[in-house]
Computed example of a mutant assay.
Amino acid sequence: MFTVEKKDKNQQPNSTEVQYYVDFLYQHLEQYGDKREDIKKALDYALGIDNKPGGFILTAKDEQSKIVGIAVILNTLMSGFIPDHILVYIATDSKVRGKGIGSLLMDQLKKECSGAIALHVEESNPAQFLYEKKGFEKKYIEMRLNR
């Protein structure tokens, strides 16, 4: 049995917890992840640090209160032409994948969010099947100009 906890600007995790989240995501996102400093920026945004719009972090825990999954959702403060929320990261511990943790996190974040939710997924990421099962649709091809 797994439980889900929510952290946001009103219920801030301490700095040790945040560092644990960064390390967890860095490890378990594997080839689909980002640099630690970029993960930390997303967590700070979700927690409303430096007057960012905020969002929230969901952690899935096992019976021993060990984190086995994390989802990070950012608020965009837009609606209609841009989704209200962006699911930036979702990862489960590689040792317990396939046990419904990702599905549990997806169900909870859908309850927590009002309005549209967007996410980016690489074509080769097998998690896209979970996203489609949970109601997400392929809508756009993302293109970026990095400078």
Rank of each mutant, 00 (worst) to 15 (best):
N146S: 15
K111P: 00
F136A: 05
S114D: 12
M78V: 14
P13E: 01
G54S: 07
K35F: 03
A127I: 03
Y45H: 09
K95E: 10
I39M: 07
Q12T: 15
I39K: 02
N10F: 08
D84K: 13
I101H: 04
G69K: 00
G102H: 04
F24S: 00
F81T: 10
G48N: 09
V96T: 04
H120Y: 13
Y21K: 06
V4Y: 01
S114F: 09
L104Q: 11
L58C: 01
E142P: 04
Q19E: 13
N51W: 13
E123F: 13
G55K: 05
D38M: 06
L77K: 15
I67P: 02
V121L: 12
K99D: 03
K9I: 04
E122S: 02
P83H: 12
K6V: 05
D38N: 11
P53F: 11
K66S: 12
N51A: 09
A91D: 02
G102T: 00
I90N: 01
I67G: 08
F136G: 05
D93F: 10
N14E: 07
F56C: 08
V18M: 10
N10P: 13
K95C: 07
L29N: 03
D107N: 11
G33D: 01
L109P: 00
D62S: 01
Q12W: 10
D50L: 11
Y26C: 15
A42H: 07
D44M: 09
A42I: 07
E5C: 02
S103G: 09
I49P: 00
S79C: 00
L87I: 11
N125E: 06
V96L: 03
H28S: 08
K41D: 14
E137S: 12
V72A: 05
F81A: 15
Y140R: 08
K134Q: 06
I117W: 09
R144H: 13
K139A: 14
G33H: 02
T92F: 10
L105K: 05
D38H: 02
E17Q: 06
H85N: 13
I101S: 02
A71G: 09
A118Q: 13
A71Y: 04
P83N: 10
A118M: 13
K61G: 00
K139T: 15
A71N: 01
G100V: 04
E5F: 01
F2S: 00
A127Y: 07
Q11D: 03
A118E: 12
Q128A: 03
I57V: 15
N14H: 13
Q12C: 15
N10H: 12
A116H: 07
V96C: 09
